[in-house]
Each structure stands twice: as structure tokens, then as C-alpha cells.
Design a protein around this nucleic acid. Sequence first.
DNA 1: AGATGCGTTGAGAACAGTTCTCAACCGTGA
DNA 2: TCACGGTTGAGAACTGTTCTCAACGCATCT
Lengths: 150, 150
Amino acid sequence: MTDPQPTHDIEAVFREKGIPFTRQRRLIWDFFAGADRAATITEAADSLRGDGVGQATVYRTVILLSDLGLLARVQDRRGEICYTAPPIGHSHPLICGVCRRVVRFDGDGDVKELEARLAAATGFSIYGHHLEVYGICPECRAVKEGDRGE
Amino acid sequence: MTDPQPTHDIEAVFREKGIPFTRQRRLIWDFFAGADRAATITEAADSLRGDGVGQATVYRTVILLSDLGLLARVQDRRGEICYTAPPIGHSHPLICGVCRRVVRFDGDGDVKELEARLAAATGFSIYGHHLEVYGICPECRAVKEGDRGE
DNA sequence: AGATGCGTTGAGAACAGTTCTCAACCGTGA
DNA sequence: TCACGGTTGAGAACTGTTCTCAACGCATCT
């Protein structure tokens, strides 16, 4: 379980593809990359409204970043769709279902082997997978136990 | 990779919980359980409209069945939300990204071990995971190759 | 520096999917 | 038979997402 390396140098990715890295895109990227937990599009839009970033731009940029593989879509305990960065180097999220904090891990060894077995057994050609693990982080567990509530 | 046992006897599950198993619920359940591929709520509603099942009822029932763990939410290649039965006995879906056919497998051994390692490394108490594997089934691959198109 | 062109942006309209509301309905138990 | 509680269908309401289009920003060319 090696730590996946964090995503640096998004600008290089954009430059390489000839896509402009605008002020708005930087702000949106910073929002997700700077957060230590998954955030919804609505949260990003609300937070960046003051900086003059339109909601449509947030939607467009999240799609763009997702297509580039710079943002991964996950969901919290209530099934709410959130996005989190950076999944580069192929890692998987361990998400706190309460506070949405995300810890990334590289569980690929485990899945690769499974995929090979599946391909052999079913004849499918496997092109990907989606693995999220859900838990409660130590902090949230502590709070919960203090509360004595669910 | 053992085959997960199919879900029998939904009625018993309902009875046990004291939830009425109505005509509409049966129809909706039959729709998903009878399909060999994941289906959207819209598809279910369209298909059952003729049988006098309202759209709201389909939504309500899908939520109900999901809560009971009788229906699992997955997504196809385009990110469309679909539901598939039966996930009982804890299995995972291998989904054809083209035709949405679902083959279920029991990859739990693999994930359980990973979860234990994660819990130890992060201090999270793990309560669940979500694993989907995507592929193209042999049939769709054949069609695609015949077409010579992507 | 000024002109040109192309992709990006923001505001708001449009749209789609989902949830809510409420009166009618159904089945069960008395 | 009657009363009751949960379920249902139709449509309204709501929410999140996408589309439209004119204005803008930035790079390039003159």
C-alpha cells in the first residue's frame, strides 16, 4: 500500500494538451486540490462565486478535469456526488462517510489480479474499475462517541 | 471466485420486516430481477407504465429495495445511474459498458484483506466499500469488431 | 500599438430527473 | 360492514445540470 504521489503541475498537463489554463480553471482546481475532503459542485460554485466564477464554468471545468483524470467522482454516505483530487497514478479513495475526508491508497495490486481472473472467467475485456472504501475517520468516531448519538 | 447465490424469496424479506409486498412492488422487483442487465429508473417506469405503475412508485420502490439491500446502484460507461439485482450475499458487478449486462462475482476475499490493511494504516473504521469492474462483454466486442467502428 | 480570431466565460433560460402533495384506493382487522 | 393505516397515481414543485448567446480575454499577426 504505497502512497500515491500527489498531483503536481496541472499547468503542464493543460499546456501539453494545448488547453488554456485560465484564472477560473485555476481557482476551481485549487478549490478541489486544496480541500482535504471531497466536495460537491454546488459547494465549489458557492465558494467561488465571490471570485467571479460562474456556476456553468464550475460544471464545465469539473467535467474537463474529470476527463483529464485530474478529478475523481465519489459519493458520501448519503449518496451525494462529490469530487476529489488527485487520483493521478491510479489510486483509490478511502472516504470518511461523515466528514468526507479522503485518504488515497493504491490498491491496484489487489484489483489487477482480480481483473485478470474475471477476464479469464467471463471473456469480458476489462477496461477499468471503480473502487471506493467507506469508513469513519478517527476524528469523527471520537466526536460520535462523545455525543453518544448516531 | 464463487458464484453468489441469487436472491430468492423477496416476499419473505418484506414479510419479516412487516412491509407490504404489493402488486406494484412485485412488478418493479420482477423488472429488475428479471433483467440480465442493469436498468435505469426511467426504463423501469416506461416499461411498467402499461401495467398501471406510476413513476413516483417506481422511485419510491427503488429506494425501498436499495435500503433493503435488494438492489444495487451502478453506472454505465456514460455515467448513467442504473440499478441491478440481486446483490444479496455481497457480490460485485462486472458491467458491460456498452450493453450494461451485469455479471456478478464475489470478490470479497480480495477486498476484505485490503480493508484490514487500510484500517490498520489509517485508523478508519471501515464500514463498506463499493467495487465495480467495467468491461466489454464478448458479444459487444464481436459487434464492435464487425462494425469496425468505435 | 492596433486589429483579428478563437476559445472561454457568466447570466439566465431551458431541460431532465427526482421529490413532494394530496386525494383516492386497497387490504386488514374489528 | 366499517374504520384505519399504509400505498398509490397524477401532476405540481423543486433541484441539479446543461444549453444559449453575447461579452470577454488572450494570443497571434500586421
